[in-house]
């Protein structure tokens, strides 16, 4: 099975999970993030469910050191919490709090044909593009200084 087929199936299952858990319903997400009003704690259970399976998968991955198809596993190695992580995550949290949409549910909303979802995702892609350009500029700039 090629990595393309696996990724397609995984994305499909991931999206089904987002719909079933109602993570793809921005109003529900906002009523979870807004703890000051009448708080709907449901979405904490999404993380609980996902982590319960995720922990097993990551332990298996670490113990095996390779996939069941014999290919290598790319695990995140960084344990550093730097300024970029803090301010990036902070910005992400603010954006998530405004719309109630994070990247996965945004893509699912595009699939429902929602114009709201499309506007969010197009803006998100522009944001990611801006990051990439800034990174390239920074890389060029620092090498030309040396």
């Amino acid at each position: 099975m090629s990595i393309i087929v696996i990724a397609l199936i995984s994305g499909l299952i991931f999206g089904i999970g987002l719909i079933l858990s109602e993570m793809a319903n921005p109003a529900k997400v906002l009523s979870f993030l807004d703890m000051t009003g009448s708080w709907d704690p449901s979405l904490a259970f999404v993380m609980l469910g996902a982590i319960s399976i995720g922990v097993i998968a990551f332990n298996l991955a670490r113990r095996r050191g390779q996939t069941y198809l014999g290919t290598s596993i790319n695990l995140p190695t960084s344990r550093v919490i730097d300024r970029r992580l803090v301010f990036g995550s902070l910005a992400f949290g603010i954006g998530w709090g405004i719309a109630g949409i994070c990247p996965g549910p945004g893509l699912v909303l595009v699939g429902t044909g929602s114009l709201h979802g499309i506007v969010f995702v197009v803006a998100m892609l522009i944001g990611m593009g801006i990051f990439e350009l800034l990174e390239r500029y920074r890389a060029n700039h620092s090498t030309s200084n040396k």
């Binding site: 995984s10 999970g17 109602e22 999404v46 469910g49 399976i53 298996l60 069941y68 596993i73």
Partner: peptide, 18 residues
């Protein structure tokens, strides 16, 4: 349940595609 489905998707991608 939805969270566990998301976990399964993560497991599939990790353990089959790395």
């Amino acid at each position: 349940a939805g969270g566990m489905v998301i976990g399964i998707a993560t497991a599939v991608l990790l353990l089959l595609a790395g």
